[in-house]
Design a protein around this nucleic acid. Structure first.
Length: 469
RNA sequence: GGUCCCAUCGUCUAGUGGUUAGGACGCCGGCCUCUCACGUCGGUAACGGGGGUUCGAGUCCCCCUGGGACCA
């Protein structure tokens, strides 16, 4: 496989969203697989809508996800000379021509064509040899002289042959009257100049492709291969947007997702390799093939992402997970209680019950804080007068316990329950509420083991008071 | 409205003319059990419709329907 050069070319007019990330990922994977290069180009020609904070967000997002680039970032605003040269060449060779039509005239033509039921695209008024030509002295834009007949065909790596009839391609503008180049021109010139071999981008660009091919041809350049990825849809099958949750990928970081999990999830959205669900980065590079990408759009399934993230989270060792949690909490400006060893014991009791670091931190509350948040219904149901003697017997027993570990705690619980002729649950549940505030938690012996003797006994004593009302 | 693209369980998908249409998420149930999870075992659920081609179509062709994108 010859080395490919691919690129990701976002415009900084909004946050980097998951659809963009997937495009970047597939593009990078193709380059890596072929031992080629992946470039990053910021399409900031739309000065009015481009903002620096979006550029930072895009860069941060890609870095967080580990989708790194080999060249760039390049900025189109710094490459104006290149575009001006290309436009000059195009005009000189007759492939493009000046057009003096005003927006009003264009609009008028559109209205008339609409009323007459004819084509509303540009009528080539200023095209040499076709229309009357431009009016002297007026400012001019530059238009491509698109072919009048035949068709423009390309073979998409994902969708196969795509053809556009020439009459569907109007004489589009490549430079505005103020001289600034348009998107079509800039993209084609940049991709050519950067020697991109495979343009991987969203489905929404399919209709632009023939125009760009025309520019390549007019400049005497060989067009690259194209791969148009189907879009990522929301649960309502509409194009993913803010309404569907996270607008920016960085929100997933703040929600406590692992970058590897998000990358794995996005890779599997529209691509598959047999029945495999979990892929390491190396496997992705090794197994990714554009031919295996599904041509149909896919729905972003947040529940499956949660499952996948949980798989990644559980694959971490307790020490690693504790470190992850410390870093996560630090991002929010909080420091975790206790030392690393204690934190590792804590997270190992919680890890099977959460999908994200956010959930892990939230669920660790009763370990980290001493002012418990009580579930009223649980208190009412379990911290009853009946439970008081059981709890008191347990307190007495625990006070006399020589060692504080899971085995001895369990033995103590069983002894107390047996002495009162009760099942273990009758004791464990009230203890759970007294110690954690709620009726669900990890195994109660593990919880007490992590909590330690003093904190446990203090909570149990408060619990007894609650039982007595 | 014009052009282009798409179509297997609710969702992500396997499938390249002959399969009891497989897997994963979710959901439901059993087991495990101090609760909740995890785990494990089992279950629910799909080829949008109609025509062809063929001995035989989820797989090939056409039409319809539906969805999406771009342009207006």
């Amino acid at each position: 496989m010859p080395p490919m050069r691919t690129r990701f070319a976002p415009s900084p007019t909004g946050a980097l969203h998951v659809g963009g990330v997937r495009t970047a990922l597939f593009s990078q994977l193709m380059a890596r697989r072929s031992q080629g290069s992946f470039l990053l180009r910021i399409e900031d020609t739309d000065r009015k809508r481009s903002e620096d904070r979006y550029i930072d967000g895009i860069l941060d997002g890609l870095r967080w996800l580990g989708i790194d680039w080999d060249e760039g970032p390049f900025f189109q605003t710094q490459r104006s000379d290149l575009y001006r040269d290309a436009i000059g060449k195009l005009v000189a060779s007759g492939s493009a021509y000046p057009c003096s039509c005003t927006p009003e005239e264009l609009e008028k033509h559109r209205e008339e064509a609409k009323a007459a039921g004819t084509r509303t695209s540009y009528d080539r008024h200023c095209r040499p040899g076709v229309g009357p030509g431009p009016i002297e002295g007026r400012p001019t834009s530059i238009r491509m002289a698109a072919p009048l007949e035949g068709e423009v065909v390309f073979y998409d790596e994902i969708k196969g042959r795509i053809a556009f009839a020439a009459e569907e391609i109007e004489d589009f503008v490549i430079a505005r009257s103020d001289g600034t180049p348009t998107y079509q021109l800039v993209v084609a010139v940049d991709d050519a100049d950067m020697e991109i071999t495979h343009v991987v981008r969203g489905d929404d660009h399919v209709n632009n492709t023939p125009k760009q091919i025309l520019i390549y041809q007019a400049l005497g350049l060989e067009p690259p291969a194209f791969a148009h990825l189907p879009l990522v849809l929301g649960k309502d099958k509409k194009r993913l947007s803010k309404r569907h949750g996270a607008a920016s990928v960085l929100e997933y970081r703040d929600l406590g997702y692992y970058p590897d999990a998000l990358v794995n999830f996005l890779a599997r959205l529209g691509w598959s390799h047999g029945d495999q669900e979990i892929f390491t980065r190396d496997e992705l590079v090794e197994k990714f093939a554009i031919d295996d990408v599904n041509p149909a759009a896919g729905v972003f399934d947040a529940e499956k992402l949660d499952w996948l993230n949980a798989q990644y989270l559980r694959a971490r060792s307790p020490d690693e997970l504790a470190a992850d949690l410390r870093a996560f909490a630090a991002r929010e400006g909080t420091e975790l209680r206790g030392d690393a060893a204690w934190q590792a014991r804590m997270v190992s009791t919680l890890r099977e019950r959460v999908a994200t670091l956010r959930e892990l931190l939230d669920s660790a509350r009763y370990y980290l804080e001493d002012d418990l948040v009580f579930d009223d219904a649980a208190v009412k149901k379990l911290l009853t007068p009946d439970a008081a003697p059981l709890l008191e017997a347990l307190i007495a027993r625990l006070e006399g316990l020589h060692s504080w570990n899971v085995e001895d705690l369990e033995a103590a619980f069983r002894a107390v329950a047996d002495a009162h002729d009760q099942k273990l649950g009758k004791l464990a549940q009230p203890v759970r509420v007294a110690v954690t505030g709620g009726k669900q938690s990890p195994g109660i012996f593990e919880v007490l083991d992590v909590l330690g003797r003093d904190r446990t006994l203090a909570r149990l004593r408060t619990g007894v008071e609650t039982c007595r009302g």
